[in-house]
Nucleic acid binder design. Structure first.
Lengths: 339, 339
DNA sequence: TCATGTTTGACGTACGTATGTCATCAATGG
DNA sequence: CCATTGATGACATACGTACGTCAAACATGA
């Protein structure tokens, strides 16, 4: 009737509780054959470990660490704030946060290396793309730490999952919107990235170009600006470019520092370019309302945190994960549908 | 150091475990003054009940019921399928599903009335808007059953929360997109609803009209068709309308039965109207790809189920709920960003 | 002041699992 | 054939809470 317990498993396998426990927790001192018998009994009964009871008995704490880029990136600061606000919301879970200099793969690799596997069960990291970071992640995994990437992925590394939007798709969305918004006007399209060192920016740009080339081939895509998610740099670079290039009809800002985009647009001409940016913040919201921005592509930080935490918990337990439930949706905001 | 337990509470309050238990589980046989002392001790210690341990001891089962409309609505069928697929994913939780005739408030009220409060701890219901349903919900709540509305809300009823997208905002999103897609063409805009009896459709239409009137006032919004989420009815009604009204430039299908929209568009003129519909399904995806639809507004059924379940669990426990974590985002799909 | 009812405490058992100690038994090597 | 090692079982205790029983302490009214 109710779920089978280790007692049932022991009975069916014809062994003692101790042996079942040894098998379950992967302790030594059980013969191959016995191990197999127990496994078969579990299989047969459809035994599933009661994680709540296990945690209770073990007084388990999941010790999770979020590694985020420092700096004025308001999306990241928002993430950090929400993590702090929700740290108490999870049972048996202690959450801490470290920040590292942004766009600095050596610093990130160093921070990852200095994590003590004895103190940490799982890590969620906003990755920058480099071999050193890959190696640091691999080292963590080797020492039994669960690892997921957050916001910006690091494929073909040993991270176990990625929590964030599909960034290629986000770029495609931006292109699809921007292409339609520019309908009737032909000219140059500017992309403003933070750095191509982070995968999310690279992927967004990839998706953006795919669609723009295929569907809106009459537009000219300029080489990307790199603003390092710093609004002052972004504003300066973009203002200079706009002054130099009169035929800009569209702007896609695919990183942070969007405040700089709004500032560069401030002294805009009457037929200002259409603008699509990432992340809904107080400033991007304002820019949407006053017509400076046409669309904002958003990801929900609260959801990302909660997905990262539950994902790490199941990874630590060695349980199965449901990719559907871990999905983060891309949200699109226009002036008229601001929440 | 670690979280305080009832033992600590008992010690601080100067009473026995039994008494703390009586207070905690709201049993009788405790004097007012004692009750207050215990409450104060819990306050002082910041005691939080360990739900996992409580459930373990109590062998608690959350018995949850989803009440969905029957019929060919593929979004609802998808929901039902996903519930079935994930029923095992929650600890201590038994989930069942009932379906009732769609757009039939009497049937829904009847189904709600026939729920046995002794067998059911929480209900998630796709509501139709009527006094009878409101009364049935109130009766459930009076008898101690937790209630949330799902997909379609029933405000000013006694439901404790709503799980679904903000439908006014969804309508606004649709209008904002459709308005821009139609830029340059002026004419009539058609809305196809299921029934104005369900709140979600009414709200979507409301938001749609708000934006269209304000931002795109040169377009003419026709009175809504009611297709009862049935693709045959929708196809017939829409085909007839299109034949009669040559100047249609945009279509917003805000309910189900979008297959009917695609069918009516099949023999489309070269300058076919722009189309925005709800819910990503195999068919709407195909229609996006072949250019029949321009945008699909989507809500993630898997997320809705999981949010509904956790929400009901905390409501049953009497715990606090985090409205942020319960939010369902609106997703926008164009041809170029299909997942 | 007694009888009565109410409030409280002491205690045990249970939930499903983890973990430790100790004893027992079989297999292995020399 | 005995000593050693490895495999296994028996048993106890713990995690934090629920819940039942019984008796003791207390308050209340007559």
């Amino acid at each position: 009737m109710s779920r089978p317990t280790i007692h049932d498993v022991a009975r069916i396998a014809g062994v003692s509780l101790s042996t079942v426990d040894r098998v379950l927790n992967d302790r030594e001192g059980v013969r191959r054959a016995t191990r197999a018998r127990v496994a078969e009994a579990m299989q047969q009964l459809g035994y599933e470990r009661n994680i709540a009871a296990a945690n209770l008995a073990r007084r388990r704490q999941y010790r999770l660490l979020f590694v985020l880029p420092a700096g004025g990136n308001s999306f990241m600061r928002g993430l950090e704030r929400e993590i702090g606000a929700r740290a108490e919301a999870w049972e048996f879970t202690a959450i801490s946060v470290t920040t590292v200099p942004p766009f600095d793969d050596a610093a990130l690799a160093g921070a990852l290396q200095s994590i003590d596997p004895a103190q940490t069960d799982g890590v969620a990291v906003v990755a920058t793309d480099s071999a050193a970071v890959r190696a640091a992640l691999a080292a963590l995994r080797d020492r039994g730490v669960a690892v997921v990437t957050l916001v910006s992925d690091l494929p073909s590394s040993r991270r176990q999952h990625f929590v964030g939007i599909d960034n290629v798709q986000a770029g495609r969305t931006a292109a699809s919107l921007l292409g339609r918004f520019c309908r009737g006007r032909t000219g140059s399209i500017v992309t403003v990235a933070g750095s191509m060192l982070v995968r999310d920016h690279a992927e967004r740009r990839l998706g953006f170009e795919q669609v723009l080339r295929q569907e809106f081939s009459d537009q000219r895509v300029l080489p990307p600006l790199e603003g390092f998610d710093d609004q002052d740099i972004v504003a300066a670079q973009l203002a200079e470019l706009l002054a130099r290039t009169p035929d800009v009809v569209g702007i896609y800002s695919l990183g942070a520092g969007t405040r700089g985009v709004a500032r560069a647009m401030a002294q805009a001409r009457p037929d200002a370019p259409s603008v699509v940016v990432h992340e809904l913040t107080a400033h991007s919201r304002q820019a949407l309302l006053d017509g400076t921005f046409d669309a904002v592509i958003h990801q929900d930080p609260v959801r990302e945190i909660s997905v990262a935490v539950s994902l790490l918990q199941s990874l630590i337990e060695g349980g199965a994960i449901d990719p559907e439930a871990a999905r983060i949706g891309i949200e699109v905001y226009l002036r008229d549908n601001l929440p």
